[in-house]
Design a protein around this nucleic acid. Structure first.
Length: 894
RNA sequence: GCCCGAGUGGCGGAAUGGCAGACGCGGAGGUCUCAAAAACCUUUGUCCACAAGACGUGUGGGUUCAACUCCCACCUCGGGCACCA
């Protein structure tokens, strides 16, 4: 036996696999074009890395999970696409370039080289021939092409809007890129609001479908779907048109529309609110006595930072504009105020205030002494009789001390009084019908989701293919002129930008030929990551981003794996892209990712590992100590994949020990007397075992083999890698018990099968380890060793066709018979059963005895045995009931 | 405030309503060794000197022959959203 030396065998097999092209989907060893076509496809995908530096433990975890799934599926006979690439545009490259006086490209590509080497060192089975790097012209060319397709489909728009501006990154951000407390997702600086003209993708056109199709994503975590649903934020209700009055208070022909989820409370509207940014606000008060107060509120609201706004219950400020509007439901004139809690970018920026039914309006009414007419009361409320039918308004001394926003009965609501009120209630519907009849409103749906702001005032990104012409306006770059190449001689370290490169932006208008100006903003990096999974399917296509039929073959992704932090960002954008590309007839499916696994973080001392905290455990250090396989197995073993895990150094030593034990056991199973490095014999036999004891151990091992293979299958299918590994450990423990049997008394077939199964089960998780054992000890049958266990007789379960050399071997020139080309071991649940089982006997819920019965014993026989065995505990108390749970226990109630 | 998760030994974690704590780490004792490391064996939820027994899955109730698991109420921690009309 040679020692298990991961540092020697891992690079060896990595080189051998690379040479044999074992992981490329279209060059799989032993597969012909026909056999490949006959296989089902399986697309396993992990979120590609940003090349920020070294590979860290989070990557190791993410990619190990994906690799296990890929290798397992290959052994199950699928043709597996398992690609990798880099999301390589983005701001960190610019910052690093400035810091190191380098260029973003140099920094990025150097990091990619470093990460590629690390990923290869970890033994991940990627099809490297398909690697996609988003900052390569060959890739971003097609990002521009897709941009033009979306533009053709009217999904691209340049418009003036309030935007989020990060002063530190000196660029605008999408809504999704502003964290809950108003911080930039990347640098955590406080985001400012600005009014700028920017490029948008009209993701809101798909708001309803993005929401509806969440229901079809059965393979997604509920949590992620919930987060997306909240983010999309659909509200149903009505649009109501209020008639504007002129400065003298006379109704005009103009109306102003509000959105409400509670049309049933329309009679309770006692004032009307505009957002401070609303264009009508200043128009109303210009030159009036109200102007000063209104301007003060506007100024105060504008200066409020995101932090202040996020503090929840904030003192509300407002001012009367001097104007009135007419409530269409009852013709009442109500005053128009501005209020700083009204958001310009939700609904219409104008709101009907119902202080009795809305906490915020209530607080505002109290503060400014506005009427609070009750219109909804709980059905059992005594006020009903008192209020019903009365039209007088109760002012500030209403019996209510707070707003009532729940469901109830409409009161003081004219013809609608007595109807059920609430969101989407009968009362709401009746009010909408009435409004529609008089042309003053309609049913409506509002989304919280905003369009996706995709332009960035940064250099290191995909150039937006648009040209500004004084004569023609904004003109798309013609498809034939693509790609718009990002110049590499921009020296960001010296503060250089695209906007300072005339050779980039001085162009002629494609429409009229006159001098024009190229767009110097680049696209959000999230546009690059919104379709990379499609490019993997057809990575070298030089005519289109991907061929439709090829995309249809591999997509949707069967299993996507990545961090929860993309629950809204990347995962929502990618869904949008897929739907938009489908409508552009470029592909034929609705959702990109059929199944999603969000893996937990790797922590140290309860904190996320980060360079700035200095608490990073470097994967390279662990590989140097224990090897890549031990690291892979350990990270799988520590916790279920979707939970955060706490790094512990001593645990990986345990896994290293486990692999060493397996190593020795495999040799021992061949009959070889295993010795340690100093020649001390480790194989120890128990010569006292008689034939019956040997047979019992053999039967136990056989049962355990069938049980564990079945367990590993079901655990891997559910991604419970930790329990799959536990089960393999249990198998090893049983094997260790059998290895006490002297070599001459062992069952050769059983030893062979046990060794092979052990190695095959570990192959997806510890690929080099398994490959070495397979090739050095097992391929071609177990033949080596002092005991001379004969190989080739492998029948039974263990391995379908794997009798050693596969039939395809002759057809190709690979020098080895890879364990990763073997079929997954089969198992027979019936053989996992022992002939007899021990049952616990409970008397009134307490275990009082144990009985051993045949596995197929009849219920009455079991009952009889249990009653006699537990007779002492039962005593003379009458037996009321007996429950027999086959294989488990007997419960006796006395 | 609203919406999700999660609370099990010293630690990581197991348990289609059916013997709680699998598997591993750590600890204790032992074998081997001059010694140590490695390896192997035994042991390891708590209480009790041992045994017998009792108690044990955040808390309190409930359903059930049987509850970590299901139901109700609550506590704690983590995450997301939050003036969205």
């Amino acid at each position: 036996m040679h020692e298990y030396n991961p540092l020697e065998i891992e690079p060896k097999w990595q080189a051998a696999w690379a040479e044999a092209g074992i992981d490329a989907v279209d060059a799989v060893i032993g597969d012909t074009a026909d056999s490949l076509a006959a296989k089902s496809t399986y697309y396993a995908l992990e979120m590609f890395p940003y090349p920020s530096g070294d590979v860290h433990m989070g990557h190791v975890r993410n990619y190990t999970i994906g690799d296990v799934i890929s290798r397992y599926k290959r052994m199950q006979g699928f043709n597996v696409l398992h690609p990798i690439g880099w999301d390589s545009f983005g701001l960190p490259a610019e910052n690093a370039a400035i810091k190191q006086n380098s260029t973003p490209a140099n920094w990025t590509y150097a990091n990619i080289d470093k990460q590629r080497a690390s990923l290869k060192r970890l033994g991940f089975s990627y099809d490297w021939s398909r690697a996609v790097i988003t900052s390569d012209v060959d890739y971003y060319h097609w990002g521009q092409w897709i941009f033009l397709k979306l533009w053709e489909r009217n999904l691209v728009e340049r418009r003036l809007s309030p935007v989020n501006w990060c002063p530190s990154c000196t660029t605008v951000l999408a809504n999704e890129q502003v964290l809950g407390d108003g911080e930039c997702w990347r640098c955590k600086s406080h985001v400012e609001r600005k009014e700028l003209e920017q490029w948008y993708f009209k993701i809101t056109d798909y708001a309803q479908e993005l929401l509806d199709d969440l229901d079809t994503l059965d393979g997604w975590p509920e949590r992620v779907k919930q987060m997306q649903a909240n983010w999309i934020g659909r509200s149903t209700g009505a649009e109501v048109d209020f008639v504007l009055c002129d400065a003298s208070g006379e109704p005009t022909k103009e109306t102003i529309t509000v959105f409400t989820t509670r049309p049933d409370t329309l009679f309770g509207c006692s004032f009307f609110l505009l957002a401070p940014e609303h264009p009508l606000a200043l128009e109303f008060v210009a030159g009036t006595e109200y102007e000063q107060d209104v301007r003060a509120v506007i100024a105060e609201a504008a200066s409020a930072t995101a932090v202040e706004r996020s503090k929840g219950e904030r003192e509300k400020h407002g001012a009367f504009t001097g104007r009135y509007v007419v409530n269409p439901i009852n013709g009442e004139k109500v005053p128009v105020w501005i209020a700083d809690y009204i958001l310009m970018d939700y609904g219409t920026g104008a709101v009907m205030a119902v202080p009795s039914g809305d906490e915020r309006d209530f607080a505002f009414a109290r503060k400014y002494n506005l009427p609070i007419p009750p219109v909804i009361i709980a059905s059992d409320d005594a006020l009903f009789a008192e209020l019903d039918g009365k039209r007088e308004r109760v002012v500030n001394d209403v019996p209510w001390t707070e707003a009532y926003a729940g469901e109830g009965i409409m009161v003081q609501s004219g013809e609608f009084t007595g109807l059920a009120g609430g969101k989407d209630s009968a009362g709401s519907e009746a009010v909408i019908v009435s409004l529609e009849a008089q042309g003053a409103g309609k049913a409506s749906i509002n989304f919280r989701l905003r369009d996706w702001l995709i332009s960035r005032q940064r250099y290191w990104g995909n150039p937006i293919p648009a040209i500004y012409c004084d004569a023609c306006g904004i003109v798309p770059v013609p498809e034939a002129d693509l790609p718009v190449v990002l110049p590499l001689d921009v020296d960001v370290a010296k503060g250089d930008k695209l906007a300072a490169h005339p050779e980039f932006y001085d162009v002629t208008c494609p429409a009229c030929g006159k001098p024009a100006h190229r767009e110097t903003d680049t696209m959000d990096t999230f546009t690059c990551s919104s379709w990379y999974y499609l490019r993997y399917a057809d990575p070298h296509n030089a005519g289109v981003p991907f061929a439709r039929e090829v995309a249809n073959t591999w997509m949707p992704v069967d299993q996507y794996i990545g961090g929860i932090e993309h629950a809204i960002l990347h995962l929502l954008y990618s869904r949008f892209f897929t739907k938009a590309l489908r409508d552009a007839e470029l592909l034929d499916f609705d959702e990109p990712f059929k199944n999603l696994l969000t893996q937990g973080m790797v922590k140290l001392n309860g904190e996320t590992m980060s360079k700035s905290k200095g608490n990073v455990v470097a994967p390279e250090d662990m590989i140097a100590l224990y090897g890549a396989d031990a690291l892979r197995v350990y990270i799988l073993f520590m916790a279920p994949p979707d939970k955060d895990l706490e790094w512990s150094q001593s645990g990986i030593e345990g896994i290293s020990r486990f692999l060493n034990r397996v190593w020795r056991a495999v040799f021992d199973l061949t009959g070889e007397v295993v010795v340690d490095s100093e020649g001390i014999k480790l194989s120890v036999y128990d010569e006292t075992l008689d034939a019956a004891a040997v047979n019992e151990r053999a039967a136990e091992l056989n049962r355990e083999l069938h049980r564990v293979i079945g367990k590993v299958v079901s655990d891997i299918e559910r991604f419970n890698f930790n329990t799959a590994i536990s089960a393999i450990m249990e198998l090893l423990n049983t094997i260790a018990g059998y290895l006490k049997v002297p070599v001459a008394a062992r069952d050769a077939e059983l030893c062979n099968r046990a060794a092979r199964s052990l190695v095959l089960l570990l192959a997806p998780m510890a690929p080099h380890f398994a490959e070495e054992l397979w090739n050095e000890v097992l391929a071609g049958g177990v033949t080596g060793g002092a005991g001379g266990v004969a190989g080739g007789a492998a029948g039974g379960v263990g391995e379908g066709t794997a009798g050693g050399v596969t039939a395809d071997d002759a057809d190709n020139n690979n020098a080895f018979d890879s364990v990763h080309k073997q079929p997954w071991p089969e198992y027979d649940p019936a053989q996992a059963q022992a002939a007899t089982v021990e049952l616990a006997v409970q008397v009134n819920g307490k275990i009082k005895a144990r009985i051993t019965v045949a596995v197929d014993a009849s219920e009455s026989a079991i009952q009889e045995a249990a009653l006699s065995e537990a007779a002492g505990a039962i005593g003379d108390k009458p037996v009321k009931k007996v429950v027999v749970v086959p294989g488990k226990l007997v419960s006796i109630v006395v």
